[in-house]
């Protein structure tokens, strides 16, 4: 049961969160300019490192905000720092 630091709510149990895999995978700006292979890369291919991984989590049972987290996939050790720099921006 990992203790996940939500940038909005503080550390909470893993069960409150939804996992979103690799962070920073942007949808191609012009999808129609992407080849089928490039589009497939966006849809289906994600990094899968053994070690530190920047990944997305969403605080489903709390603030419902997505945020990025750096975690070691071999040990589940969470590298704090990344989320603290993260802007807590909400478009209003």
């Amino acid at each position: 049961m990992m203790l996940i630091p939500c940038p909005w709510c503080g550390p909470r149990n893993e069960t409150e969160f939804h996992y979103g895999g690799q962070a920073g995978v942007a949808c191609p700006k012009d999808p129609y300019a992407a080849s089928d292979a490039e589009w497939a890369a966006f849809l289906f291919f994600r990094d899968n490192p053994k070690g530190v991984f920047t990944e997305r989590w969403m605080h489903r049972s709390g603030c419902r905000r997505w945020f990025d987290l750096r975690r070691d996939t071999a040990t589940n050790e969470i590298h704090t720092g990344a989320h603290e720099d993260q802007e807590r921006t909400v478009a209003v």
Binding site: H18, G20, A26, C27, R56, M58, R60, R64, R65, W66, T89, A91, V92
Partner: peptide, 17 residues
């Protein structure tokens, strides 16, 4: 709702919704 929040918060952060 999760699908919509995902796109809204992580892809279209410029949208005020």
């Amino acid at each position: 709702l999760e699908h919509l929040e995902d796109w809204l918060q992580t892809e279209w952060t410029h949208l005020r919704v």
